[in-house]
Amino acid sequence: MIHSPRVVERIAELIKLAGVSSDDKIQEMTDHYLSEIEDTVALGITEQKAIRDTYQTIARTDLKSIDQNEKKKKKWIIGIISITLLCLYFTFQCKNTPQLIATTANEEFVEIPNGWPIDSDIDQITSGFGLRTHPVSNTKRFHKGIDIKASKGTPVLVTGDGSVSEAGYNPSSGHYVIIKHNEQYSTRYLHLSKVEIAKAQTVEKGDVIGLVGSSGISLTPHLHYEVIKNDFVMDPMEVIAP
């Protein structure tokens, strides 16, 4: 009777109800309680009573601690997955780390113009990106790029592959060049003393497109450099490779 499938099944069922979920552990606990019944019967107690007493013992016992290791493991796995997802989220949020970013539309990778726009050792930024007092008008204005001080005639280098979308002159920008790199990025180079490329010409990163000057509204020779992403200016320092 002790070993009838009905008794064995009932014991396994009660163990499960007491909080054990792994099959391996249910099997081990079933052996435990069947051993207990066998011992009690050996002491002279009827099988029926021994079985009933053990049923009651299991029903009264909390066996959750036996399963604890497994639950802890599950919590760990959930924790690791959450941290990984958070890291991925922040990587894509952070603008200055990735050299390549995925466009949501077609999952293609877009190259960011990340070069330094001047061929000179004295790379000196005299005015950063953002709100500043304009050196000529003396009023607060938003500065759409960075100003890099350099002597007249210093070669100006294109910061990424692309093609010339504009090369010309106007009274405020002086001689200037605009390069379209891809669907997302364009760069602008202002106040040049000389433009050395023509509209529609293709350029490779590092090509000389002109020379530093002080044309347009400018006090001293310098390069004004802008990065435009999706029609909005952004801080070039965020994309220039260190």
Binding site: K25, M29, T61, L63, I66, N69
Partner: peptide, 14 residues
């Protein structure tokens, strides 16, 4: 108790 001995055995094995 069962709740004490089996977790101990499983931990020692691990």
């Amino acid at each position: 108790t069962e709740g004490a001995i089996y977790p101990t055995l499983h931990r020692l094995e691990k």
